[in-house]
């Protein structure tokens, strides 16, 4: 495998096939835990651990997993890694673990993870599978950070708990409540659409 190919496998998850903004997968954790930047970081890290670990294991075992029961096998492998992540977070950062609540356990049913096993790790050798998983994790992490920091800045006037605007700032509370998650993600997707349309229009203009 050439270095360029490896680089491609890694970077496609960050921009071209970004799991949240382009594929619109894994919405539930994306919206539910991004009311502050700290939660977004913890969620991103836990998901990355599960994704990379399970992609490696699935791709290493791909020749031994019978086709008929592959989904069940994947889910059991993923659930094992999630249980590990859950226990580790509970031991290291109990406060964050409490805040995220059931959403750590819900990584099991995050479609990004099962989707990568089915689409990539189940058919490729371990090295590209891990690179692919790492790229997707970075893309997911970036998306979580975008949402988490936007919502925290607008909704609490702070970032990572550090106040930004001083005491005169009136927090836009709706942004840290559930509707804010939908609205901010809607806004970001709108921005993506707009950029894409401008690019298309410019290309059409250049060829005409």
């Amino acid at each position: 495998m050439t270095p360029e190919k490896m680089y491609d496998e890694f970077t496609k998850g960050i921009w071209k096939e970004n799991p949240v903004f382009v594929q619109v997968l894994g919405m539930c954790p994306t919206l539910a835990v991004t009311n502050s930047a700290v939660n977004a970081v913890a969620m991103g890290a836990a998901t990355a651990f599960v994704l990379i670990g399970s992609c490696f294991l699935v791709s290493a075992l791909r020749k031994y997993i019978p086709k008929q029961v592959r989904i069940t096998t994947y889910i059991v492998i993923i659930a094992t890694f999630v249980t590990i992540a859950d226990m580790v977070l509970e031991a290291l950062v109990p406060a964050v673990h409490k805040e995220l609540g059931a959403f750590i356990a819900l990584i099991v049913v995050n479609c990004i993870i099962l989707g990568r096993q089915e689409a990539f790790a189940g058919r490729n050798p371990p090295l590209p599978a891990v690179l692919d998983a790492a790229g997707m994790s970075v893309g997911f992490f970036i998306a979580l950070m975008c949402l988490g920091s936007t919502r925290e800045i607008l909704g609490s006037g702070s970032i990572f708990g550090v106040p930004l605007f001083g005491p005169s700032y009136e927090p836009w509370v709706i942004m840290v409540l559930p509707p804010g998650g939908f609205l901010v993600l809607g806004g970001i997707l709108l921005l993506f659409n707009w950029v894409k349309q401008r690019k298309l229009a410019r290309r059409a203009g250049a060829s005409a």
Binding site: V24, P179, G180, G181, F182, L183, L185, G186, G187, L189, L190, F192, N193
Partner: peptide
């Protein structure tokens, strides 16, 4: 999706 997202909000 952007529109669905805003309706959901």
């Amino acid at each position: 999706t952007a529109l669905s997202m805003i309706i959901a909000g």
